[in-house]
Design a protein around this nucleic acid. Structure first.
Lengths: 231, 231
DNA sequence: CTGACCAAATTGGTCAAGCCAATTTCAGAA
DNA sequence: TTCTGAAATTGGCTTGACCAATTTGGTCAG
């Protein structure tokens, strides 16, 4: 059960994954208590503080419950709490198809509820993106704000949450693969053009056109993503 | 900037919240580097390992990026991973509307990819539900399997994951409110009838009919949910 | 003056050891 | 047999140290 530290990932991530794997393999069952921190750290060949850092990650994702004086208990076997999307073998095609389904529905709802204030916010976000692109920076945060501001206007907080999660699944900092953002300074300007088309449709309160423009944007975004990924 | 440790929450959670609050308040801006761990820990009145535990939580939720030898950078100014659905004030109406949008899209995809094997699995699941209902038990797990088996056949693992999460958001064991399942032995038989109608439409490979039947099921399910909730 | 190189400083990463708080277990007394 | 209190166990947090990665500043050469 010794950990292998040959990769560049942080130790806590590796240890957390090891523990998840042990749970998945059935070595620690639902409801069961893990070995004591001191023992488990020794078994895994790491220091106790490093083990504790890994346990925090597991606590946050709902895999374990930590009780002072008592122990660490498995409360999920990851059948209910899947790992992040990228670690589940989900492909860019599937992610963008899912986004098309969800954000398509959001577009129709949002267009019918569009207000001058929201349009103003979207306008400001697009302008901020334009400035960042002109300065050679990557407007990931404003890209996110654009998508989420529209989703928020759909009037359904569940859908808004899903839109945010799908966006983040692709831009999550956890996975080292996803640290490499796929857009380049050149392609960001295309993305901005596509955003402008979405904005124009929303301004016109045309839900079906907005939906179509979002589909175009996501399809092009997927294509750029696929073109940028190492094979 | 001294932390206050009067509550029963773990220190790392408190410190993480403090840092989030500082970021939200604009003290640390997007892209900016936080003070060094040693300095920040001192400023917040905690030990460095405790501060590191808090930073792990912030890294996981996408608020900061930690670079060895360089520093800790703010990469988001709002939460990336919202708390669970039920703690966000999402309503049954919103949840079921979102499910209608997502599972509606899934129905169309699944109907076009339906196979005898999947139909057999669905048949078995419905029969198992029927037996459980006859014995006065609540077929929550088979209910889940029915929805997820269909979603799995849609051929998009992202959508399947979302369907699972939405189902679990409603049936999550974490929220004490949701421990009280809304279906009663009587209403479970209605739910089963609705499942049968969905099954028939899938058997006929009629995507639009399957979608309509799923919408009916979710609408009725929502109504039963609302009728059962304390006001 | 500018650019390159190198050493020192700074920063995060991990470890070891210690003490405190909460819970569990066990032994002794009633 | 049951209850109580002490000891053991467990997690929570701190202090301090050393290692790895990055940044900064100084020096030298062109």
């Amino acid at each position: 059960m010794n950990g292998i530290r040959t990769s560049e990932r942080r130790l806590y991530q590796q240890v957390a994954d090891q523990i998840r794997a042990l749970i998945q393999a059935g070595q620690f069952k639902l409801g069961q208590r893990l070995p004591a921190e001191r023992d488990l750290a020794q078994q895994l060949g790491v220091s106790r503080p490093s083990l504790r850092e890994a346990l925090i990650a597991l606590e946050i994702d709902g895999t374990v419950e930590i009780r002072m004086g008592s122990g660490i208990y498995v409360i999920a076997t990851s059948e209910r709490r899947p790992a992040s999307a990228s670690s589940m073998g989900e492909s860019p095609v599937e992610l963008m198809q899912a986004r098309a389904a969800v954000e398509g529905a959001v577009m129709v709802l949002a267009a019918s509820r569009m207000t001058p204030d929201v349009l103003k916010t979207l306008r400001q976000t697009l302008d901020a993106m334009g400035r960042e692109i002109a300065e050679g920076r990557k407007p990931v945060e404003h890209d996110r704000q654009f998508h989420l501001a529209i989703a928020a206007q759909a009037g359904n907080s569940v859908l808004a949450r899903i839109v945010g999660e799908l966006f983040d699944d692709r831009h999550s900092p956890i996975s080292t693969q996803l640290r490499v953002h796929f857009e380049t300074p050149d392609t960001w300007s295309y993305a901005l053009d596509e955003h402008e088309a979405i904005y124009a449709a929303l301004e016109a309160r045309d839900g079906l056109l907005a939906q179509a423009m979002m589909h175009v944007h996501l399809e092009e975004s997927k294509r750029r993503w696929l073109d940028s990924e190492p094979r």
